[in-house]
Write a protein that binds this DNA or RNA. Sequence first.
DNA 1: ATAAGTCTGTTGAAATTTCAACAAAAGGAG
DNA 2: CTCCTTTTGTTGAAATTTCAACAGACTTAT
Lengths: 219, 219
Amino acid sequence: MKKYFDVLRKCRLFREIADEDLIALLGCLGAKVVSFGKKYTIIAEGSPAKYICIMLSGSAQMVRVDYYGNRSIISGIEPSEVFGEAFACAETAEMPVTVIANEPCEVMLIECHRIMHSCSNACGFHQQIIFNLMKNLAVQNLMFHQKLEITACRTTREKLMTYLLLQAKKHGSERFTIPFDRQELADYLEVDRSGLSAEISKLRSEGILTSNRKEFELL
Amino acid sequence: MKKYFDVLRKCRLFREIADEDLIALLGCLGAKVVSFGKKYTIIAEGSPAKYICIMLSGSAQMVRVDYYGNRSIISGIEPSEVFGEAFACAETAEMPVTVIANEPCEVMLIECHRIMHSCSNACGFHQQIIFNLMKNLAVQNLMFHQKLEITACRTTREKLMTYLLLQAKKHGSERFTIPFDRQELADYLEVDRSGLSAEISKLRSEGILTSNRKEFELL
DNA sequence: ATAAGTCTGTTGAAATTTCAACAAAAGGAG
DNA sequence: CTCCTTTTGTTGAAATTTCAACAGACTTAT
């Protein structure tokens, strides 16, 4: 487990927990690590929501395909981020989304009930973990508000500009690289890919931005 | 405070807390009750996010108006529901949304830091409250997933049907009354009101549903 | 280096949404 | 009951999105 310490230290779930306690804690929680190849399904829609997951290496996307066949990307998942916890904590019977590996991944799985019900060893970190989990869920809530701010826009241009402005703020710079290719960005913004490409060209010709593939600069 | 007990017992925040402990707890948390008239602003966009709020009576809507003037309803808030907690717990500087009273309301306000930092009296319920808060945030997360499922749809018809099917499931019946008038439903689904009315008429003429104002029946 | 496959940008036509304006229906106040 | 206000439904035109098809740029594997 030691090789994962650098990522785990950055993970919201383990805030305020000292390195020397972490090993014992992970043991107590029965944490296990699983690897997935590119394009593999990490969590399948419809499967039971038992696990709180932590991305150790690689990246993934949380995705849903609706009744009408529209693919929608709910969020990207990067190393040290927690995912699946909302469904597990809310005791959802079935996962309403799918999580798919973008590239080879290592994921840490912790059974939710190990965290929710205090452990038999009475290890002293449960309270801290629950507090961290709460904070993490609150932050995720904010991310949903951002996502809704984007999807609430009526036109492709408004959605795109709202997204790009949020990215610029997040990166603290007018220049930044986005984590999606065109099709993925379209699925995230919930618009048509070709229309999105056209809109980007238009913004470029209007002198509002410059871009090359995943790199953007707002002018 | 006693007159609010019936609502508070139903509130997620106070699960597993006995009635007789509730009074002491509310005192320890410094809970206060504020009334608002119809159409009054309960929380203003841009104001500091200090409070965890509980709706005691009446109802409200969480709303955002974007840069382009589109009004979007994020959620309806009914008695015993908690709101504003995600922003307070995530320590957001400014509220990104507005909460407006639908009708005369009573709201209980609890300063977030009173819950986050254990109280000086060392009352024994903080852990339970934080656990409840965590569960509540997880459930809210699920609601956002539902909302995203709706807004991810491309057409008015798809959004409307997704919404109505979720409502039918929620009410456990094909007949139900929705909590929005037409304009509000349009703002919730993020579509044009007149287009929404037209779509409802069309579904009616196709024999897919019957409806009268806020009452719907799926056939 | 070449070939195969993927990603991006373009285009035009069809479908859909938005917008503005108005009429009918419902609800409230006096 | 009547007047006034709000809500809902309807319509047609303008704007936008979606869809399908294709070509050029880029990547990857051999």
